[in-house]
Computed example of a mutant assay.
Amino acid sequence: MLGIYFSGTGNTKYCIESFVKELDAKAKCMSIEDSKVLHEIEKSDFIVLAYPIYFSNLPKIMGDFILKNRTKFNNKKIFIIATMGLFSGDGAGCSARLLKKCGAKIVGGLHLKMPDCVGDVQALKKSKEENIKIVQEAIIKIKNSVESLKGGKPTEEGLNILCHLGGLFGQRLWFYNKTKEYTNKVKINENKCITCGKCIELCPMKNLYECDGKIKSKSTCTMCYRCLSNCPKEAITILGKQVHEQCKIENYI
């Protein structure tokens, strides 16, 4: 068994590591950014796949990873975990449909509400105490899902047609353009930025770079909010105009 994931602010990483530990304490968990992940996928028959949901859709980086490596998923059994700030409808179904086309067998799905990671938009923001409770409730749900999987009755959240319609009409139709392609909306406040390079180091897309002593952005942001949540001077925004919260999982566990 293998756990593979994409995680921006740590929510998804925390959830899949908790799930896999409950299921098989000896199993590995790896980011899709790991250079050895494809080799490990080839060796594994059962995969737990996890990612956050953005506007009821897959992060572009995860969708591209699946399609680019479609042959690696042929004949694999896959359980899907989708994390979200509020609602996705068919969060697990978004990758399930792709993976089925790759020849994978989807054995179950789990939706987990986690603290919102969009740090430059005030909507959905909660107190630290509320976010701690959200994480605790997610852990209980993970334990119950693992027990169901061990018992041969895996949870199937986000995988049926009603879930698909919920995700489609709930958000995806209205915000499809936000996740269809990578975005160029990253903004660097030059008055705050100290050019420490932390954002460059953390960016999974290599979207940020230094030029003439300034941090600049290309047009390949996958909206993971890793840069915004780790900038020591809160100099980065993506969708909003100011940082309301740097939403890292470490704040809530």
Rank of each mutant, 00 (worst) to 15 (best):
residue 1 M to R: 10
residue 3 G to W: 09
residue 3 G to Q: 05
residue 5 Y to P: 10
residue 8 G to H: 05
residue 8 G to S: 05
residue 14 Y to S: 08
residue 17 E to R: 07
residue 17 E to N: 09
residue 17 E to P: 06
residue 20 V to I: 12
residue 23 L to Q: 07
residue 26 K to V: 10
residue 26 K to R: 12
residue 28 K to Q: 08
residue 30 M to V: 02
residue 32 I to Q: 03
residue 32 I to F: 02
residue 33 E to P: 00
residue 36 K to E: 11
residue 38 L to S: 10
residue 40 E to N: 09
residue 41 I to C: 06
residue 43 K to R: 11
residue 43 K to D: 02
residue 45 D to G: 12
residue 54 Y to M: 01
residue 61 I to W: 08
residue 62 M to T: 05
residue 79 F to E: 05
residue 81 I to D: 02
residue 81 I to R: 03
residue 85 G to T: 05
residue 87 F to S: 06
residue 87 F to W: 11
residue 89 G to W: 04
residue 92 A to P: 13
residue 93 G to I: 00
residue 97 R to I: 01
residue 97 R to W: 01
residue 101 K to L: 10
residue 105 K to R: 13
residue 106 I to D: 04
residue 108 G to K: 09
residue 110 L to A: 04
residue 110 L to G: 07
residue 110 L to E: 05
residue 113 K to L: 09
residue 114 M to I: 01
residue 117 C to I: 14
residue 120 D to M: 06
residue 122 Q to S: 15
residue 125 K to E: 13
residue 126 K to I: 01
residue 126 K to M: 11
residue 127 S to A: 07
residue 129 E to W: 07
residue 131 N to E: 09
residue 134 I to H: 00
residue 139 I to M: 12
residue 142 I to E: 00
residue 143 K to F: 08
residue 159 L to N: 10
residue 162 L to T: 14
residue 166 G to K: 09
residue 167 G to F: 02
residue 168 L to P: 02
residue 168 L to D: 01
residue 170 G to A: 06
residue 170 G to H: 06
residue 173 L to T: 11
residue 174 W to V: 13
residue 175 F to A: 12
residue 176 Y to A: 13
residue 180 K to E: 10
residue 186 V to N: 08
residue 187 K to D: 07
residue 192 K to N: 12
residue 195 T to I: 14
residue 200 I to L: 06
residue 206 K to G: 15
residue 208 L to V: 05
residue 210 E to I: 14
residue 214 K to D: 04
residue 214 K to I: 07
residue 217 S to Y: 05
residue 221 C to P: 04
residue 225 Y to R: 03
residue 228 L to C: 04
residue 228 L to Y: 06
residue 229 S to A: 15
residue 238 I to V: 14
residue 239 L to A: 14
residue 240 G to L: 10
residue 245 E to S: 13
